[in-house]
Design a protein around this nucleic acid. Structure first.
Lengths: 101, 101
DNA sequence: GTAAACAAGTTTGTATTGCAAACCAAAGAA
DNA sequence: TTCTTTGGTTTGCAATACAAACTTGTTTAC
């Protein structure tokens, strides 16, 4: 009975937000990225990137390390194991929905 | 290249909401469905289905015809041409994102 | 040396949502 | 009549996403 169509309702809402999907997709590919790289690559404003990263960090999907490159701040981000897993699951759910329709 | 990844930001937000994706996917398959069928199939409350349908109607994606089956109200819903097109585009965008990652 | 500009982020303000719960109007029972 | 059910709609509200304002520290200009 459960079509697999309805399974979309259970999709991870944190990852289903396009800005965050993009952020996580980038981190999935590169393993580690600094704030400004991520900003350019994702095409987000600093404010919004910051807010999204905070949510991803709270969820335990991303680790954020604040350090310095010389005297200027450098914020390094990378996916946690939980983040990788969540993204793989998300990707799989979306994929099977798309194929099912 | 990474424009493919960033393209997710431009995804149709109306369709990117799981409840609505499901509603539209059902209507895409059946061409016409009444309110209660849609409710069962999508697994939504009446209230939320009603609200989502209104949005889809406002957007011109769905046509709603209120009629009667005998004496009881019957609300018939179907995708408009714009709705079909929008869903096909959405599906394609998501698909190519998934493949690109 | 100090004022202005810049860099790297964070916080705040606000309008929009998505959902649950309350509501409503018509039709059958009791 | 009053009560219950059916087929929905409206309302209340907490959570969101985005833009704009702010912060903290560092160069540059004078």
């Amino acid at each position: 009975m459960d079509d697999g169509i309805r399974s979309l309702t259970e999709v991870d809402r944190l990852l289903h937000e396009p800005s965050r999907t993009i952020i996580v997709a980038i981190l999935y590919a590169v393993e580690s990225a600094d704030f400004l790289y991520l900003q350019r690559e994702a095409g987000l404003t600093k404010g919004n990137l910051s807010a999204h990263l905070s949510k991803l960090e709270e969820a335990g999907y991303v680790e954020i390390e604040k350090t310095y490159r010389g005297k200027i701040p450098l914020t390094l981000c990378r996916l946690t194991e939980a983040g990788r897993k969540a993204f793989e699951d998300y990707r799989q759910q979306i994929k099977s929905f798309i194929e099912k329709v």
